[in-house]
Design a protein around this nucleic acid. Structure first.
Lengths: 118, 118
DNA sequence: TTTTATGCATAAATAAATTATGTATATTTG
DNA sequence: CAAATATACATAATTTATTTATGCATAAAA
């Protein structure tokens, strides 16, 4: 039987995935899909697991929207698709991060403990 | 022509709505649906708009899950359905808030500006 | 009297995940 | 050496949670 000690029960709040992808690509110039999943896993200490079923469609969509450029490379006889931000993708990244920041501030305000003295 | 100055473009990140509902009910003992939408609108200065199409199904679901009790009241000849947290709902509220807090911390860590000196 | 506000509800459409597969190669392990 | 695990992509089916679009009804405001 398999005991999972560092359970990542935290499902993604829908809408944040592509922002994470963009942000990572904003830092690292070019990355391939599998690399992104691993990076997120390491950075969040297993807290956030990016499933491939979510990741790859998200990458394809971002590419179709013109935010990513792709470059196929063969390494060790295995395929890699490297993605990098386009000019547009760069702007989009800033916008989405700002949106998410703003949203999180709002949420923080809503769910922060309230003093109930009245 | 209608010019919207304080545009709330911020769509809800899916998964956070019911947490907001629970949190508000954790503060205010009992509230009815419409009241919740207005409260959120005021608290967030129009930043977050809870659509009724999302709110009412969410309330019904929380009730079905045993987290809310309902009490129907007629005020000014109009119906109100007051919701309040059950015992279970109280626990669930704490859990969901903790989850969301945790998720937001993780996200903050991921999207915070990085110093790229290496 | 028409619009806006109050108050509920639900159906259809959309979006974005999860889950479950599938293919293929490389590496590690027993 | 065989089997399991890691690497690396992909897609289809399903699930979930929204938005959008309605609908009904009463009260108040314009």
């Amino acid at each position: 039987m398999y005991i999972c000690l560092t359970m990542s029960n935290s499902k993604l709040y829908k809408g944040s995935l592509s922002t994470i992808i963009l942000k990572l690509l904003g830092e690292t110039d070019r990355m391939y899909g599998y690399e992104i999943t691993q990076k997120v896993k390491v950075l969040t200490k297993g807290e956030l697991i990016m499933t491939e079923g979510a990741l790859y469609p998200a990458l394809h969509k971002l590419e179709a929207e013109g935010f990513l450029d792709v470059e196929v490379v063969k390494v060790d006889n295995r395929m890699r698709k490297y993605y990098r931000l386009t000019e547009e993708g760069n702007k989009e990244t800033s916008n989405r991060i700002a949106d998410l920041q703003n949203y999180m501030e709002t949420m923080q305000f809503l769910i922060k403990p309230k003093l109930t003295l009245e």
